[in-house]
Simulated assay, not measured.
Amino acid sequence: MVAEMLPTEPFSVLPALWGVYAPQSDTLLLMSALSREPITASTSVLDLGTGSGALAIQAARRGARVTGVDISRRAVLAARVNALLAGQVIRFRRGDLCQAVAGRAYDLIVSNPPYVPSPAAGLPRHGMARAWEGGRDGRIFVDCICAAAPAALRPDGALLLVHSGLCGTQTTLNL
């Protein structure tokens, strides 16, 4: 079933060339969850930490109106090119999580944020590690997204968020 949801365009080409994190198994897991969501032409989707744009493109293919956000200039550029190659119209913004779309509400938020616990005290400012390191406990971005989601979701909206079990699944569910 997951193979049917794989993007047909080569998402790994541009990310690999530009230093943008290429879609991995956690992205495929989110694609699988996304495929079970009721999406129509009136569904608005926010992809936080869009990276290569794989999740945004998948939602757009299903007919959603999609906005993708990433703090990385390279990621936003790669996502725009990938969306163009996929023939999808998606709005991409550079910014810090929900702050880039403050005041807007969505039916669905999807996110594959940096969630790997890091040995370093601070977050990396540059380089590939920025795509996966989530602070000492891996929760910096997870907690931020959980805190911002209620204001960014419409009534009956949903948040699809992936992270490691090392980050404390129950804590996330409680938030």
Rank of each mutant, 00 (worst) to 15 (best):
M1V: 05
M1T: 04
E4Q: 07
L6M: 15
P7A: 09
T8A: 07
S12Q: 07
S12D: 14
S12A: 15
L14G: 01
L14H: 09
L17C: 02
S25F: 08
S25N: 11
D26F: 06
T27Q: 00
L28Q: 07
L29W: 11
S32D: 14
A33S: 11
L34E: 08
S35C: 10
R36W: 05
P38S: 14
V45H: 04
L48I: 15
G49R: 10
G49Y: 05
G49T: 10
G49N: 11
T50Y: 01
G51L: 02
S52M: 02
S52V: 05
A54V: 15
A54F: 00
A54S: 11
A56Q: 00
A56W: 00
R61A: 03
A64D: 09
A64G: 07
A64K: 00
R65S: 13
G68K: 06
G68L: 06
G68V: 06
D70T: 04
R74C: 08
A75F: 09
A75Y: 11
A75G: 10
V76W: 01
L77N: 09
L77T: 14
A78I: 06
A78Q: 07
V81H: 08
L84P: 01
L84G: 07
A86Y: 12
A86M: 11
Q88C: 15
Q88Y: 03
Q88L: 10
V89E: 15
V89A: 12
R93P: 00
G95H: 00
D96Y: 05
C98A: 11
C98V: 14
A100I: 08
V101G: 11
A102F: 08
G103K: 13
R104E: 15
A105H: 15
A105G: 10
L108C: 12
V110H: 06
S111Q: 12
P114M: 02
P117I: 12
A120Y: 01
A121V: 10
P124H: 08
R125Q: 15
H126R: 14
G127P: 12
R130D: 00
A131F: 05
A131I: 09
G134P: 01
G135Y: 14
R136G: 10
R136Q: 14
D137R: 09
G138C: 11
G138A: 15
F141W: 09
V142P: 01
D143G: 04
I145D: 00
C146W: 00
A149E: 03
A151W: 07
A151I: 01
A152Y: 01
L153W: 04
P155T: 03
G157H: 04
L159A: 05
L160M: 13
V162Y: 13
H163I: 03
G165F: 06
G165Y: 03
C167P: 06
C167H: 02
G168V: 12
Q170N: 09
Q170I: 05
T172A: 14
L173V: 15
L175V: 05
